[in-house]
Every structure is written in structure tokens, then in C-alpha cells.
Design a protein around this nucleic acid. Structure first.
Lengths: 205, 205
DNA sequence: TAGATTGTTAATCGATTAACAATC
DNA sequence: TAGATTGTTAATCGATTAACAATC
């Protein structure tokens, strides 16, 4: 039950397990096995058991895992047993789509604030929010205590905005801008560049 | 120069190298080193050299790598020295944003076709395309010879549409739907679920 | 030439798999 | 009880790093 030195690669799989379990739960299934869960997500049963055993003993020999319990524990481990406020920077099409994305609310996130630099966009409404001026991002984000941001701005502006977000106290960034970011120790970045995703496919064609 | 059994994890880094190199090239830089490129993308110099050496000898001792040449070679390796037609399925906000995404054209991709199932959306214009009925997806995708698709539909519909895409000859899928897909050998899937991305961050907060 | 940097080897480190006793 | 499945160990497999001769 050592929760301190878990390898990143194990942590990165937990949200996928959680997603599959929630899907099963929605379909009224209450119990699963490492074999069944593994088939569902494309990972070996042995690896699923090994991954979960990093955090405790969640299953029962002979019967497997009780899904509601495993969902609860994984949610705690991933700290999504609460709701995190998120800021979205960049109100282009992609940013607006993310700001209004329906899939966050039941998975631990709530888009609370959004920013753009373009005068024509500032003050517009997106969902229930009013687009704010990115000039005030450090102050606004800090005052709201927001720790997570999604970056949907051009590559050229990404590092500068990243620096401001970190100054404001942000500790995690989901980066849709097509550029690698430089961040200090302790700040986590996840990259989502659709062109990179596609180029990881074409190699095999 | 064995290009046959390259580990997936190495292939997955190449698009990131390519992106960084193209960024350097746009800034007029013509030469780089494994150290400099590594600093840029957050990977050790040794690993960059090892990764590249899987495909050939692209550098020169003492001077490093000539950027235009390395871009050319990586583009060939990733097969993005050409333009791939892509289909987008699901014309919600996210799908429309991707269909019109500006970042594909100079990185090897062209969104050629888009689909939805909702009568009110079919026939609408998105960019230069007309939204097609997903009912005809097998026929339309096959006739166009499209090999790559982006899935931006609800989880519940994702597997069924995936099966149809594969029937139509698609070999690679960029999946924005929050669900694991089951695909036959030889079909590549890349997953882009924003909530998964965020949950990989909250663990560390 | 002297300095810099590659490509590659060997050593280290880490992740995955196979197997099975424990036990529900 | 008998069958099923866990958690864990040891073995295997694979990836990363360190170091350096080669050479531009």
C-alpha cells in the first residue's frame, strides 16, 4: 500500500481502468475480474492486478472486484472523488468546445473560467461563463484558487501563458497547443496534439 | 537501419521530435544537437540519439544534425511526406473544431469528409465540406480510399462506428470518444480523452 | 589541430509476464 | 467442497543511461 513511489506509467493507466469500471457500473454490472477488465481495456490481467496491488488489496479471491468499491478507491487515488475547477485559455473553436464539454462533470472536473486575448471575444458568453481578458489571468486564476488549466492557444503564445499560469499557482496543464512546454519541477503537463496522434498512426500504415 | 521491429515507444516520440525540428526550422535555425533537441522536448540526449539511430545515421560528429535533412527523413519515416485524407465522424462542437483545425495541413493531413447521424446536421456545411449521413459511411469512406478517421461521437456509438470504419478499410483511428475500442490486429488506435488527461494530472496534486 | 558531438556498446534500471500459493 | 481468482514472487523482457571510440 505504498502510495508514494508509484511509477508514472501505472498512474497513467488508472483513469482508463476507472472509465471502464464506470461504464460497467452504468450497465448495471457489479462485479468484474482482472481478466474481464483487462479484455475491456486491452491490458493483460496480470498487469491489472499488479497495478492495483500498488495501492491496496481491492479484490477477493474467487470472485474478483466489486465494481462500486473499486470505483470509489480509484476515484480517491486519482483525487477525482471531488470536483476540480479548471480554466480554459483560448476561445477558438477547440477551446469553446472544451469549455462546454459535457464529459467533465461526472469525472471530477468543472470548467470555471475561460480566457482569450482577442478584444472581440472578451466579454462574450461561453456556456455560463463570460470570456475574460488573458491580461488578468495571473490575478483571476490565483484568486479563484484554480490548479488546473487547459491550453488551447497557438504554439507561439503557449510558453508565455504557461509561465503566467504557473505564477498564478497552476500545477497541471492539459496542453492542446502543438509545442513542448518547459515547466518547473512539480508541474505536470499532459499533451494532446491531434497531429501527433495521427502521425503515431501513419508510421504503421 | 532496421526499420521493421522498432518499438512503439520510440515511434511515439518521433512526431514530437519532428514538431520541435519544424519549429526550429521556422525560426531559421538550420542545425541542432541531440542535447539541444532533447532540452527542447524534455528527453535525454542519449535517448534522442538512440531513437534516431534505429533508422539511420542522420547526424555528423562534431556538428550535430542538419535540421532540414532530419525533418525530411523523419517525415518519410512517419509517412507524412505526403497528405493523408481523414474522415471526421461526429459533428458536435469538438468534431466541427477538428474538421476545421488549421494545424493539419502542414503536418501531413487533410480532412476530406465528415459524418453525423442527426438529420438536422446532415447536409450542413463545415468548412468546405458537406456533412454526410453516417448511414453511408462504409460506402463513402471505402470509395474515397480513406484510411484514417477521427471519432468524435458519444461512447455508446463508438464501437459500432469503429466496426463500420474498419469494414470500410480504415486502418487508423484517433478516438476522442471516452471508451476503449476493440479493433482487429493491424488497426491502430490513438486515444485522446480529455478527462483521462486531467485525471493523469490530479493524482500528483 | 582541438573541441564537439555522433553512433554504439555495455551496464543499469524498470516494466511485464508467468506461475502459483492463498483463499474466497 | 470444488472452482475461480486474487496478490505476489521470481523470471523474463525491454527501455534508458552512461561512457567512449570514432570522426567531423
Amino acid at each position: 500500500m505504498n502510495t508514494e513511489n508509484v511509477p508514472d506509467i501505472i498512474v497513467s493507466r488508472l483513469p482508463v481502468y476507472l472509465r471502464a469500471l464506470q461504464h460497467m457500473a452504468e450497465n448495471g454490472i457489479t462485479t468484474t475480474s482482472s481478466q474481464e477488465l483487462g479484455d475491456n481495456v486491452g491490458i493483460s490481467a496480470a498487469q491489472i492486478r499488479k497495478d492495483l496491488s500498488q495501492f491496496g488489496e481491492f479484490g477477493k479471491q474467487g470472485t474478483g472486484y466489486h465494481i462500486p468499491f473499486l470505483i470509489e478507491r480509484l476515484s480517491q487515488i486519482l483525487k477525482v472523488d471531488r470536483s476540480w475547477d479548471v480554466a480554459v485559455v483560448g476561445m477558438g473553436e477547440l477551446g469553446r468546445a472544451l469549455a462546454r464539454y459535457q464529459g467533465f462533470s461526472n469525472r471530477g472536473f468543472h470548467v470555471q473560467m475561460c480566457f482569450d486575448s482577442e478584444p472581440s471575444k472578451i466579454g462574450q458568453h461561453v456556456g455560463e461563463m463570460t470570456v475574460r481578458d488573458v491580461k488578468n489571468i495571473v490575478k483571476d486564476v490565483r484568486e479563484a484558487g484554480i490548479k488546473i488549466a487547459m491550453l488551447c492557444i497557438p504554439a507561439a503564445a503557449a510558453q508565455e501563458v504557461t509561465d503566467q499560469l504557473i505564477e498564478a499557482g497552476v500545477q497541471g496543464i492539459l496542453n492542446y497547443a502543438p509545442v513542448s512546454l518547459s515547466v518547473p519541477e512539480g508541474v505536470k503537463v499532459q499533451y494532446i496534439d491531434p497531429a501527433v496522434g495521427l502521425q503515431r498512426i501513419t508510421y504503421y500504415l
